[in-house]
Every structure is written in structure tokens, then in C-alpha cells.
Amino acid sequence: MKPAIGKILWVLLATLFVLPAAYLLLLSFSSSWHFPMLFPDALTSKWWAWSFASRYAVIGGMGLSLAIAAGVSLISTLAAFLSSRWMALSRHRNGLLLLAYFPFVLSPVVLAAAIYIFFVRLGWNGSVAGVIFAHFLIAYPYAVILFSGYWNERLLTMDALAATLGAGSFQRYRRVLFPLSRGVLALALFQTFLISWFEYGLSSYIGMGRVPVLTVQVYRYISEANPHMAAVASLLLVFPPLLMLWVNKRFLIRLI
């Protein structure tokens, strides 16, 4: 490929990736933007100021989303790491792995509709705990699938050797398995965080609007025909994953 074509392609791809975010940024600072103008007629910071006001609770929603996604990623990664090790040693490994794919056969909204009745009976609908558990139902099997290929013969043998050297279960995880698995654990934490962070169907259905996570707020502003506040909420939705990607790039790029 000629260098000039390569450069053009690079610029095109970069524009393609950056343009939606740039458009959102502009929209979040515009007070009026009429067709067919390429840029807004006037700029304002009121939408961002409003997002901090308690009436709009966008920042509160962001904090809630962060707490839910962090909790879901931590619980599902840990649970999946432990259970995938057990699965690797189990005779029923393939059958269990097949079951882990099941939640992904359904779309999240269909899954939410299917499990909704159980949440109502348990009294978990409309609660943060209910949303966390609903997110866990898809983040956990995803992490199990991610870890399923990780437990190779060498790692299991090292674990067995550590046991004969006197290490109990907790010590083996602490001193051998977790340190050896830092890369894949970081990847699982990141991916499950994203699953929970961007989840709309389950959050909306199980949360019943009483758990105002950011994704629910974005859709609410869109349905209220308020594109400026929707742009602010969308930008806040993009920011934490970008930050995580930057922080974890060393691990993630090595694993890709």
C-alpha cells in the first residue's frame, strides 16, 4: 500500500471513530442548531450545568451506573474465575459451557421479560439489588465463557504442585493463580464492566424506571425530545469506558 493511501485511510478511520463523539460534544454545548447549518448557531454550557442540578440527576445516574457496573464486574469476574476452574476439572465441562451460552441466545429485553416475574415475586423489581442481579445473569456466563479456554493443563498442574507443597485453596489463589492470571482477570473485569455499563434492556425492565442508570436516562431524554441533555448523558456514558481502556491498554492490547 502506498504511504499516501495509508495516510488517507488512517484519517478516514480516525474520523469515523471520533466524529460521533465530536458531534455529541458539540450538541451538548449548543443552544440552537438549525438545519442545514454545519455548526450550532450559539454555544452554551447550561446543559452541563443542568446535568449537575439535582432535578436532572445525570451525575447521580452516572455514579449509580458506576457503582452497579463495578459491583457486577467484580462479582461476576470472581465467581466466573472460581467456577470456570471447577468446570475445567469437571466431566460435565462441555455441557456446562453450552449452558453458559444460553443467556446470549435471547436478547437482553426478551431475557428481562422472561425473568421479570421472578423478580416481582422476590420483590427485587425496581431496586438496585435487582438490577445488579439481572446484570450478573448475563455478565457471569460471559466471563465463564471467557475463562473457559484459560485453564490449560500447565496452569492446573502448577496449582496441583502448589497443593502438594502445602498451599491450601486460599493460598493457591492468592499466591499462584491470581498473580499468574492478572491479564485475563483485567480483561474480564473490563468486559463485564462494559456489559453492565451499557446495559439498557434489563436496567429499564427490572429497574422499572426507579433505578435511573445513565443508559435509562439517555433513552428518557431522547423520548422527551431533549437531544442536548441526551448528548450530555451519552458523553458521560462514553467517558468511563474510555478511561478504563486507557488505563488497561497495557493488559488489553497484549491479550488481543
Binding site: 498442574t157 502448577m158 496441583a160 504442585l161 502448589a162 497443593a163 502438594t164 507443597l165 502445602g166 498473580p179
Partner: peptide, 19 residues
């Protein structure tokens, strides 16, 4: 359990902990 038997099993591979 293995950790309470006082027997160490050494494999053909050294399996030193790489970290």
C-alpha cells in the same frame, strides 16, 4: 487433601512459578 499429606510431587517439568 494434598496439602496435608507431607508428600511433594515433582513433575518432569520444573513448573517454577513464573511470577
Amino acid at each position: 487433601p494434598p496439602q496435608k499429606r507431607g508428600m511433594v510431587y515433582l513433575y518432569q517439568e520444573t513448573l517454577l512459578f513464573p511470577h
